Computed example of a mutant assay.
Amino acid sequence: MCRDCSVPLTPSRRSFSTFLAVGAGLTLLTACNPSFPAGSVQTPEGSTSAVASGSPAAVPSESPEPVATAVVEPVSETPATAQPSPSAALPAQHSLTDPASPWLVVNKYRPLQPADYAPADLVQPAVAMATSGESALLNGTTAAAAEAMFAAAAADGVFLTLASGYRSYNTQVATYNNYVAARGQADADTASARPGYSEHQTGWAFDIADGGGACSFQPCFADQPAGVWAAANGHRFGFVVRYQWMFHPITGYYYEPWHLRYIGVEAATDMVNKGIHTLEEYFGTGAAPGYP
């Protein structure tokens, strides 16, 4: 995910979208690969998508009740700003550090443990695809929820496609190393998740596109039917928009209206009801604007 928090932001999402349409801004928004073929768009954390006019991008391989608390295990680096968890209203307890837990919080302060974690239950969901290979996979729970969500969207006349799902540790190693070689580590760390720090590696997260292919991996996706529908309805199926507008000082990443993260129906609905926009705030882990 390509981000640089030093870039000044404008007050409106539309003006920010216009800025990001130029090369430098687009580099900041998407996760970077130093080279990709003509006729493609750059997708988060370095994958590329061939774009056909009027069609989705094709990507090559690559529940609320009282009263309980989230299980917060220690991690190697914890920001000093961590606060008590607003998630205490939920009945179920899940780990915040186990990669197999739907409540996992992974960010620049909280690497996966183990770093080369791979889900044991990867499957390809029965949904419309704009990708193939490992990127078409999700863990079993996320896949089932995605199937229900895509079907509900279709019933409302909105066509979602899965644009990028699972990304293995080795894929992330190659992506990150290529960027370091091209631009240096300091720049790479503002642009691409280090291996072992990506939500895509967990199987709990995926990127969506609109059936018409418009605004794929761009801020204007938020205004497309798929983006509008997912933001308004994703929580009904356990999904939240993980990197929301203007919350990069907390999440460490700029706006990605296409990046959905499964946390379960109860937690996702509770976040919406409480008006909380980030997992860091909801689970009380503290902000993670950059690597420690």
Rank of each mutant, 00 (worst) to 15 (best):
R3N: 15
R3D: 13
D4T: 04
S6D: 13
S6R: 10
P8D: 12
T10N: 03
P11H: 14
S15D: 12
V22P: 00
T30I: 02
A31L: 06
P37D: 10
V41E: 05
V41D: 05
V41N: 03
Q42S: 06
T43D: 04
E45Q: 13
S49Y: 05
V51G: 04
A52K: 13
S53G: 10
S53A: 15
S55R: 09
S55E: 06
E62C: 10
P66M: 11
P66Q: 09
T69A: 12
T69F: 11
V72C: 06
V75L: 05
S76Q: 10
S85P: 08
P86K: 09
A89M: 14
A89S: 15
Q93A: 13
T97V: 13
A100Y: 05
A100L: 15
V105A: 03
R110D: 01
P111M: 14
A115M: 14
D116I: 11
Y117A: 02
Y117C: 01
P119A: 15
A120G: 15
A126H: 03
A126L: 05
V127W: 01
A130N: 03
G133M: 12
E134H: 11
E134V: 08
G140E: 09
A143N: 08
A143H: 07
A143C: 07
A144Q: 08
A144P: 03
E147L: 04
A148W: 01
A148R: 09
M149W: 00
M149Q: 00
F150L: 01
A152P: 02
A153N: 07
A153S: 14
V158N: 08
T161I: 10
A163C: 06
G165E: 00
S168I: 14
A182L: 09
A186L: 08
A188M: 06
T190V: 04
A191M: 13
S192R: 06
A193G: 00
Y197S: 01
G203A: 11
A205T: 15
I208N: 05
A214Y: 02
Q218K: 13
A222M: 12
D223Y: 11
V228E: 14
A231I: 05
A232G: 07
A232H: 07
N233Q: 08
G234P: 01
F237V: 07
F239E: 00
V241G: 02
Y243H: 13
W245D: 10
M246C: 06
F247E: 14
H248G: 00
I263D: 02
E266M: 07
A267P: 02
A267G: 04
M271Q: 04
N273E: 10
L279T: 08
P292S: 12
